[in-house]
């Protein structure tokens, strides 16, 4: 008498089609021995056949939209990255990091009476939210959340720029609303930046987030590490190539320039120190510059650049500097 386990194995093999003639013979005689055996076999075969239809009507992915998203990366000369590690600091953070620069912000507060508003006017500040998440606010930035934060939602409204170290809670996703954008965190750490009159920009360093505009989750772009997306007013988010290594300079207290044109160097310094440059000779802007500043002071940076790039830098008025030959 054959054991049931052995018969099951024979049925599994028969379904796969990899059954030997000898095994087929065993199965046949077992089937003929009892109508109940035949019924058992047929019910499993019927189940196998029935299951075939399970995915016959599955949703069709939008190939054109996906190709658009994919092909935007193809123009980049560097290999595409699935995971990017920009610095040892981030490796320790080991989570999702996002930057969003938002345009035309409307800062609406749902429960005005219960809301909490955190601000960082002149300096950078660190806060711990009720759910244990940490927020590092850059200067001139503001974060608000209502009284129910942590109970049935973890939604915050951001104006400006912030780094989030989000406490894990799979049942209650952490959502940042900035401008027209919504960033749903699928990982645990990220940064959001929001400046008026600029598209919302999202930069994922590690981990994964869902980035959406007006259409909400239906139009969401799920971005993994090393990828960047922007959201222009009245459009859907799209992926772009971010070549700015200084997108997290404010958080890392580090400016890094590797053979980049001076105009890129200067705009990173403008953003970092909140100053402006006036350049009298535009040809200067294409000089290439290489250098790294850790925890930089403005006077030091200007001094080093004027010497290495052989330009003169003079203070025109408060926070405005003129660059000339």
């Amino acid at each position: 008498m054959l054991s049931n386990d052995h018969i099951d194995t024979l049925i599994a093999r028969e379904i796969e089609g990899e059954i030997t003639a000898e095994e087929m013979g065993q199965l046949q005689s077992w089937l003929e021995a009892d109508p109940a055996n035949q019924a058992y076999y047929e019910s499993l075969k019927d189940t196998w056949d029935l299951a075939a239809g399970a995915w016959s009507e599955m949703p069709e992915p939008d190939v054109e939209r996906n190709w658009q998203r994919f092909s935007e990366n193809l123009t980049a000369p560097a290999p595409l990255r699935v995971v990017t590690r920009r610095s040892s600091w981030w490796r320790m953070a080991a989570a999702a990091i996002v930057i969003v620069a938002a345009a035309g912000l409307t800062f609406t507060l749902i429960q005005r009476n219960k809301e909490t508003v955190l601000t960082a006017d002149n300096g950078k500040k660190t806060f711990t939210l009720p759910d244990g998440s940490k927020v590092y606010l850059n200067r001139n930035s503001q974060l608000a959340y209502n009284g129910s934060f942590g109970d049935d939602n973890r939604t915050v409204q951001l104006k400006g720029e912030a780094f989030f170290d989000v406490a894990a809670d799979a049942a209650n996703p952490f959502i940042v609303a900035a401008g027209a954008s919504q960033t749903k965190v699928l990982g645990t750490t990220f940064v959001i930046k929001a400046y008026d009159d600029k598209p919302v920009q999202l930069d994922v360093v590690t981990g994964k987030v869902a980035f959406s505009g007006k259409k909400g989750d239906n139009g969401a772009l799920v971005l993994t590490a090393g990828h960047t997306a922007i959201l222009q007013t009245d459009k859907e988010p799209r992926q772009i190539q971010n070549s700015d290594p200084n997108f997290m300079a404010w958080k890392e207290n580090r400016l890094y320039f590797s053979n980049v044109p001076l105009y890129k160097t200067l705009s990173a310094i403008e953003a970092y120190f909140n100053i402006r440059f006036i350049v009298s000779d535009p040809s200067l802007l294409n000089l290439n510059y290489t250098g790294t500043f850790d925890d930089p002071a403005l006077t030091e940076v200007l001094d080093v650049i004027s010497k290495t790039a052989e330009v003169k830098i003079s203070e025109e008025e408060k926070d405005v500097y003129r660059i000339s030959r």
Binding site: P59, P61, N66, P79, A220, V222, T224
Partner: peptide, 23 residues
């Protein structure tokens, strides 16, 4: 999608498959 029944995740992972192919 058959293994991970969430279209957004499936599309995202499919993108990664093609990124690897391209590289």
């Amino acid at each position: 999608y058959r293994l991970i029944p969430d279209m957004a995740t499936a599309e995202d992972l499919a993108q990664e498959v093609f990124i690897k192919i391209w590289n």
